[in-house]
Design a protein around this nucleic acid. Structure first.
Lengths: 213, 213
DNA sequence: ATGGGGCAATGCGGGTTCTGGTGGTCGAAG
DNA sequence: CTTCGACCACCAGAACCCGCATTGCCCCAT
């Protein structure tokens, strides 16, 4: 199907690169300068779901049109939540796909997601607001930046090294700083609400889960 | 009702696209080139209220005719405040709706809102007037320009660097200038009214909120 | 000349960040 | 089950940075 799509789009004048699995696609999207990405969810090695998530976590805002399997393990809401800009369920008509593609190209730039969510925890980068449910939470800059990073990679385990690299922008700092700040965060977003969303994975790092009951 | 409206308008020679919920509508309005949008407030997924707000926030000035539920959680003032160009309360006559539509089309272009609002704070760029509620506020040019920038990005945190870039048109000036002028502004739009709308977000910048009680 | 807007400079107060230490917890091996 | 080592949580203080008010000077307009 991908090959057919490529031929069709090329016939219309698009320049098309085709990646053969998720890893390959992620690699292309990272390096190449594309105007738009068409991303199937069912891919070998790395699902489209994860490709999209990773790209957005890396602040790559290339417009993404997501294609879902019709049985739909993930539905439209999931796709858009992950940071896809548009979504098309299989089976779809070729004409519709091209129309949506043109729409994305016209819009350009890609959409910066307004707020990040994980369970009833929400973080709005633009307004710099954090809330657990309805109650707002005050964070210092460092805490905010740490939580933002964790939320962009929610449900994944992130190592202290990764955190130091992305939040502190250094890689040779004492990892204890991370432990301390994870503690601060827990006291603000978990403890007062009886939650346990910011979990520690011994020997590996930390993980932010949605249902930290 | 939407379907009936569509048939009626098509019979009159309009080309009509019908979206089935707020998200879909927003999507259409973003991509398509429409002459006018008829927007109901009560919509699945994303309220018309929000669709309108989002479009205007994206500098999309397509003319919008808003339809309210008769019980009216939001009333006319709200609708117009959000950037709708006209407003019709249910129940309305079909003839009136078409008349209003033609009026909007005649007017054309969509209306760039004349005045910016944030809570009871208003700023009119054309007349260079600022008021908190009913009482006018006198601002120096620099203060005015700073407030205008903050109001165009109200509720967002804007960094001092951004402010320097857009209000001072330089990026290598001492950020202290911004701090000083934020102070001036506060003394004119907040302090005399016992408000706190111009908030500082330590380590990040400033944020102008509507309910700075 | 004079007043007011615009901007640089200084110092203070308070929050934020980080370090180092201590004690606790987990897991694997004896 | 116990022991041990590694890993992690927590605490408290010190250094630091940030934001703000204030002051004074320059420049342009009146």
């Amino acid at each position: 199907m991908a090959a057919a799509l490529k031929r069709g789009l090329q016939a219309e004048g698009f320049a098309v690169d085709l990646a053969h699995d998720g890893e390959d696609g992620l690699h292309c999207a990272r390096t190449g300068e594309y105007d738009v990405v068409v991303l199937d969810i069912m891919l070998p090695k790395l699902s489209g779901y994860n490709v999209c998530k990773r790209l957005r976590a890396e602040e790559n805002w290339v417009p993404i049109l997501m294609l879902s399997a019709k049985d739909g393990e993930y539905d439209m809401a999931d796709g858009l939540d992950l940071g896809a800009d548009d979504y098309l369920a299989k089976p779809f008509s070729y004409v519709v796909l091209v129309a949506r593609l043109r729409a994305l190209l016209r819009r350009g730039g890609g959409r910066r997601p307004a707020v990040l969510r994980s369970g009833d925890l929400s973080l709005d980068p633009a307004r710099r607001l954090v809330a657990r449910g309805e109650t707002a939470v005050e964070l210092t800059p460092r805490e905010f930046s740490l939580l933002e990073f964790l939320m962009r990679r929610h449900d994944e385990v992130v190592s202290k090294t990764e955190i130091l690299e992305h939040v502190w922008d250094t890689y040779d700092t004492d990892p204890n700083v991370v432990e301390v700040y994870v503690g601060y965060l827990r006291r603000k977003i978990d403890t007062p609400f009886g939650r346990n969303a910011l979990q520690t994975v011994r020997g590996a790092g930390y993980r932010l889960v949605s249902d930290g009951g």
